[in-house]
Design a protein around this nucleic acid. Sequence first.
DNA 1: TTGGTCCACTTGACTGGCCAAGTGGGCTTC
DNA 2: GAAGCCCACTTGGCCAGTCAAGTGGACCAA
Lengths: 243, 243
Amino acid sequence: MSFEYTPPKYAQLIAELERRIDSGEYPPGSPLPSEHQLMAEFGMARPTVVKALGVLRDQGWIVTHQGKGRFVRGRPAIPTGQQARAGRELLDRKEAQVSSRLLVSGEVEVPNRIAAYLGLKPTSPVMLRRSLIEHDNEPTEISSTWLPVEVAQGTALGEPGELKQGIRRYVESAAGTALDHIIEHVTARNPSKEECSLLGVKSSAALLAVYAVACDATGRPWVVVESVLPGDRHELEDAYLIR
Amino acid sequence: MSFEYTPPKYAQLIAELERRIDSGEYPPGSPLPSEHQLMAEFGMARPTVVKALGVLRDQGWIVTHQGKGRFVRGRPAIPTGQQARAGRELLDRKEAQVSSRLLVSGEVEVPNRIAAYLGLKPTSPVMLRRSLIEHDNEPTEISSTWLPVEVAQGTALGEPGELKQGIRRYVESAAGTALDHIIEHVTARNPSKEECSLLGVKSSAALLAVYAVACDATGRPWVVVESVLPGDRHELEDAYLIR
DNA sequence: TTGGTCCACTTGACTGGCCAAGTGGGCTTC
DNA sequence: GAAGCCCACTTGGCCAGTCAAGTGGACCAA
């Protein structure tokens, strides 16, 4: 009895073709072997070859022209859809991973913007957990987590202790459902007095504010994570295919 | 002879299942009909049904559990991967579509940031095309296009006339290759004196600056499009699945 | 030389079938 | 009654083949 894992044939073909493109054996712009040639070389049926090539096309490795063939597009800008979006990183970041100092953890009256994102009335109470994050002993970011008090009850998010997991875990267990998607808002604004002293910037400085609204599959928002960064020290980067 | 277009069977199944999910006939969390049931209902072979369901899974409509079935995930946050990224919109926007006033079109010495993005030496000449864009008779955005003079020669990008197509068309014909991907940088900063008067903001205001670097498949940058927006009037929004 | 036809080659769509693997309920057996 | 086996049902992977549609070069005829 053998317990070895052998990946599916089509996955092996994907890996081999990716390797050849990456190594320069199939340079950008060059045609790939035709379906029949790949069938012969790898001993697969045509649907199997086509399935592998379809994945490579969806991932941006190749383009296809009916009647002509498939052509190498070059190394995808984003390694297989795994781009590090700012909002997702905020949700899954663990407090132990960064040098941070907890500023607030408790109930406050909800600010207008957060109320709009969470679909709450203007004076509702919300749980706020706010930390100052430092890099190289310099304050570089204020991270705030906002969620309705009903959701926060029973979680450790209102406690002063350090969180052992990312925010997403806590919210998903309290919500009883998986978080499905993020709606990200990016804007620029001037700092408040508190932000001036915390970040050590002038009151006329430009701050980059990122709001990540995490929703379940029905579109209901559960939590908002805010990240405030000095604009002169930070830059958001994102890469994607034009298609 | 008939010239009617009939979409492929699998695409018809995709459309029908999307409709049923959207209408609430298949509510979130509920199981989809099994492959055999769909085969019987729509008169398709199994691979055809599976192909349609695979697309729905990739687009985030459903999740699958081997041995159990496929389950509705809810309406995807992003309609079919067609999210409007800021950078792509800048590249394909046509000047006739927006109310704009051309400020600059000609050669200038390259700024440091643009030189870094384009991989040029600090004092190289570059072509700059800059417009002030208005909405509701109010200036709301300064859009600048930067590209190496060698690329700009022979295109209409240096001419004062209105561009008939999006920037991407001009650059692709001059480059002789297709633009493949965009690397987007977002940052916040204070306005220059010129930007103050053009946008009608104070010198302490916070501006949102978006830089879209368009590259070909080999990763070579061809053009940088910069968009400067007052932070208090604009907000970038983006939605994506958590996975 | 020019124009058009034909054909080989490519990918796209689809069928009908096979076996493997995961899940869960019912049945048998102890 | 409880543990374990069996089986029906599900999706995952794969094969052999058919027909349609797009591309481009070879070839032929005017």
